[in-house]
Design a protein around this nucleic acid. Sequence first.
DNA 1: ATTCTTTTTGAGATGATTTATCAATTTCAA
DNA 2: TTGAAATTGATAAATCATCTCAAAAAGAAT
Lengths: 154, 154
Amino acid sequence: MGYPIRLTLITMPKHAREMGVLKEHLGKHQLKFTRQRELILDAFLKQEHITAEDLYHQLARKDPHLGLATIYRTLNLFCEAGLAQARHFGTQTQYDNVSHKGHHDHLICTGCGKIVEFENCDIERLQEEVATRNGFTIQTHRLELYGLCSSCRH
Amino acid sequence: MGYPIRLTLITMPKHAREMGVLKEHLGKHQLKFTRQRELILDAFLKQEHITAEDLYHQLARKDPHLGLATIYRTLNLFCEAGLAQARHFGTQTQYDNVSHKGHHDHLICTGCGKIVEFENCDIERLQEEVATRNGFTIQTHRLELYGLCSSCRH
DNA sequence: ATTCTTTTTGAGATGATTTATCAATTTCAA
DNA sequence: TTGAAATTGATAAATCATCTCAAAAAGAAT
């Protein structure tokens, strides 16, 4: 009986953990915490993946008119801080939100463009094996499977 | 005893099989077989992977002066014919020669840029599993492992 | 709070890569 | 050989991302 005691968590600001990661990275590199960086991180974390251009338009309506260059700079900063990962799919660069998972693999439908994300420990273990056998130490990886989803096969 | 009877193969023109693949693709799409396309395929097949720019410079001295636009058009044509595969690595597009292997996976050193190619049947089998579980039929895939090679780790 | 140094921002210029345009040329089937 | 259709090459244009730099903001030290 009694209510679950989650009040402190419920009232925590959104994306507190990621904001902390960002601040730690900034501190370590003599960089500053700005309103723009906060706004962009907040918006970025609401998506699985987005392009700089899309994020620019999404934020254009907000109060200060954020420059496109700032969006690019900040997304690249997130990559360095380990909050995002750049991926070149098609013509524009996609920035993936990897703040809540170790790796990010994709199943991509060549028919409709649908993207399904997955994780597979067995594959990752085999990747480590291959790398070790070749004297490499893996920092990150990218696995994309292209094909037709069930709807597009017909 | 006696010599191995491989004479017909030995005297076959280089890249005959791939040239056949190209011609078949051209025929199916009302496209024409030109001297440029022949030259570009010949040069392209001599590498594992190359950028349009590099191929352009490599061919610049040859008889008909090939335009850069033609190189791009033709490499994209090869992709459609299944002879090449485009990969966005860094800023330029890399065109991989996939004519003699099923798939093309890479170990890429983030220190020196060295690229090691590998194939791993176990990984491919697991990829099929993942795809099937999600209702996908795989057409192709891309696996890139980024890390430091043994020389760059120091 | 004020000052001061350093970093960041925004707007547009710039750079890099790829595609589009179009007249002249080439291919290839009739 | 002829003629319709496709291709080519040169360059313009488009696309995407980074660079430049003066003005603004951040943050530490007064």
